[in-house]
């Protein structure tokens, strides 16, 4: 909570002078107004936690304006708007269970599972046996997300991606 608004952290840069107090330069988005600001916290400093409720809901579909989720036990449905989903839209896979954060009953953020499996729709064919390159190559996934993958991974394959870092983790288990 900052100035009476729940916030989430976009970026957190650790600053530590050789001789001196460590602190964190934190970029924060206020979840109601959408305002983005930068604040400095001393390492270890605490702030009031927002009184929010996390629920585990399965992603169903989008109607173009809202993203619909369902509680798999009660079948209760809830719709999150684009602001709440944000950049995580590229990790939304049907039937995957996401964490929806509610504040006063309204979804204010959507966190996808740590790992999602997505199909590669486009990537350059890698040369067989070329294992020297460590950088890999870009691959476009079915949701539009672009990640770097090793050269041996091909179009049409399903891969596992770490949604926290946006990095390739492995090929999906068949």
């Amino acid at each position: 909570m900052l100035d009476g608004e729940p916030c989430n952290i976009l970026e957190n840069e650790y600053v530590k002078p050789g001789k001196g107090q460590a602190f964190n330069r934190v970029k924060i988005r206020k979840l109601i107004s959408g305002k983005v600001l930068e604040k400095t916290f001393r390492s270890g400093e605490s702030v009031e936690g927002a009184d929010v409720l996390d629920t585990e809901l399965a992603y169903l579909y989008t109607d173009g304006e809202f993203y619909h989720f369902m509680n798999n036990e009660t079948f209760e449905q809830i719709a999150a708007d684009e602001k709440a989903v944000g950049e995580n839209v590229k990790w939304l896979v049907e039937n995957d269970v996401c964490t929806i954060t509610l504040w006063n009953g309204t979804p204010i953020s959507v966190t996808p599972p740590n790992f999602v499996e997505l199909e590669i729709t486009e990537t350059d064919p890698g040369l067989k046996g070329d294992t020297a390159g460590t950088g890999g190559k870009p691959a476009t996934l079915s949701t539009g997300a672009v990640v770097r993958v090793p050269l041996f991974v091909q179009t049409g394959e399903v891969i596992k991606v770490d949604t926290r870092s946006g990095e390739y983790a492995s090929r999906a288990q068949k």
């Binding site: 600053v15 002078p17 001196g20 107090q21 602190f23 916290f41 400093e45 702030v47």
Partner: peptide, 20 residues
């Protein structure tokens, strides 16, 4: 500059945060 209250910071920490 700060998220919390400046009074909780020491003189040197404040100087240093302004510098940084």
């Amino acid at each position: 500059l700060l998220a919390g209250d400046a009074d909780d910071w020491s003189f040197d920490d404040l100087l240093q945060v302004i510098f940084n």
